[in-house]
Design a binder for these strands. Structure first.
Lengths: 155, 155
DNA sequence: CTATAAGTTGGAGCCGACTCCAAGTCAAGG
DNA sequence: CCTTGACTTGGAGTCGGCTCCAACTTATAG
């Protein structure tokens, strides 16, 4: 008889930052397996569930739709993806998506940095005199995020 | 005077991957300024609009809500963020968000790589390190998707 | 002159992801 | 006993972001 720590729904809500309602909702749509209940019907959670929820939370931060998270939970639960070639393919493809997303995000960071820099040397500083030259041709925005025109963006 | 090329809504839809309906919707909610119309009422777009839309598309890929895109379009249109200190603050804060998002995404990539590796040396041969994955920055935040490997849950 | 194509409008409808609510159960405390 | 609090359920409502539609205008081709 081991004393694995058990948590209430409120506790894991607090610990994962996902609301109780949302956790119940995830169970309702079977994104999460039905949690074990106590005699009084209350859900009981363990460390295992905690890390599943944390994975979910992480995926959520990346903007992934709930339906697309299922494969991750399958591997999370089963831990042996090689048994499901299909799954492996999904993971690979998701990996590609995510790498693409990182690239998009990096472009946005670059865009912001560019804009902030612009403001910086306009705001003060040395002899960079561009007031006339590129004060506002009203579209220096591009120049960085063009490359992505190709592949379909879906999702 | 140069003849700046003009585009129809369909053309920029094709070029940006954003549907005509969506572009009109963005105009309706004033995310985009009201486009110039021809005599027949049709919208006319220019390079400038094209790059604005591309920026939008890029932000969209990062999962940013439309409302949060407004500041970006302001700087995109005006091109001189230093005039609006508030805006600069928003940009900075967004930059932080995005950097955080990149970290989350990187964690997911790491998770996938880990799972794929697992499958690899179980199903085929032994590989401690692969060349495919680059070095792992591995965010510290929460790296605890491992304990789940119990393979015990009833799913 | 009519048909087709490409656009316009306002508004309805849809889907995902919550979020809130009412009504009920159980456990402990005053 | 009654109340308080933490939880349960099913279902309704909300919100963001489209997506679709009907009705209409205008331009071009046959």
């Amino acid at each position: 008889m081991k004393a694995e720590p058990a948590y209430t729904i409120k506790q894991i809500a607090d610990r994962t930052g996902i609301s109780e309602d949302t956790i119940r909702y995830y169970e309702k749509i079977a994104l999460l397996p039905r949690a074990v209940r106590r005699d009084n019907g209350h859900r009981v959670y363990r460390e295992e569930d905690l890390s599943t929820l944390r994975l979910l939370s992480c995926l959520k931060k990346t903007g992934m739709p709930l339906e697309e998270m299922r494969p991750f939970l399958t591997v999370s639960a089963d831990a042996d993806p090689a048994d499901y070639p299909e799954l492996v393919e999904q993971l690979r493809s998701h990996r590609e998506n995510i790498v693409g997303q990182i690239a998009s995000l990096q472009q946005v960071v670059d865009f912001i940095d560019m804009k902030l820099d612009e403001g910086r040397y306009r705001g003060h500083c040395s002899g960079e005199e561009r007031e006339d030259a590129q004060k506002k041709p009203v579209s220096p925005t591009e120049m960085s995020y063009f490359p992505v025109t190709g592949s379909r963006s879906g999702l």
